[in-house]
Amino acid sequence: MKRASFNQLGLPVWLLLPQLVIIGVFFYWPAAFALRSSFYLEDPFGFGSTFVGLDNYNGLLASAQYVKVAVFTLGFTFLVTFFSLSIALVLAVKADKVIRGTRTYRTLLMWVYAVAPPVAGFLGVMVFYQGNGPMTEFLAWFGYEFRLGVNYYDTAAAMVAVATWNHIPVNFIFFLSGLQSIPQSVKEAAMIDNRSGTGRFWDITFPLLAPTAFFLLIINITYALFDTFGMIDALVKGEPGNNPMTLVYKVYVDGFRGNDLGGSSAQSVILMVLVLVLTVFQFRVMDRRIHYT
């Protein structure tokens, strides 16, 4: 086989330049800027600034409130990931077995994917509305007074419910295609060995789904951490008050509402590190543990 190669450095650099410029301008430059800002306390209009070293970081770690937000974010991410993955898996396994009306059934399960997170948030506000939302009235039958925006845990529950609901379709699509790519011969062979459907699922189907599941796990964690911002803003109506919030929403609250550039830059640097760790973890595990067939 003949290998194409370039004689000079000029042409390949030219060809790569658009990509490099895009990465540089839209990713590295803002990241470097955030890193720099995180060491300063700066007047938002840009007139004055003081170098404060690691004060912004130390302040965050010492703040009980920041720790509380971080703990909520972890819990929120765990619950959303767990529920949206497990519910989607059940739906996909069932949908895989449907013989009649397959398309209609699947489309019905997928349409929610088209709902943008802020819209999902508004739907959540309507469903859980204080006093007369359908879910609020439903819970009232059981004697529970659900109060969105007033009670911390009620608002948290609404956030988890809306985020889960909004993300089930993506997981469903991937799980379904994962199930359908399992060869028929494998399933038939398993059928001979084991009569129990549950047993076959855990011994054969689930391990074969592992690559899909792991990929989805990472996708779901990033979704819960970062993409739920619009939904949370809609649910708390822009007034955080005593409501729960995620780390990303706190960056917005301090940076964009409060004009604290240094503090919110430090928070976003922490998030960048988190993403870095997550990415390294993803590649490591993918290389070693998960075998794609």
Binding site: Q65, E239, G241, G258
Partner: peptide
């Protein structure tokens, strides 16, 4: 200064008073 955040802190703590937290 940073009064928007000070108000956010008040709103948060007042909410906690009124919900008994």
């Amino acid at each position: 200064g940073f009064y928007v955040q000070i108000r956010d802190v008040m709103n948060r703590e007042y909410g906690r008073i009124l919900t008994g937290e």
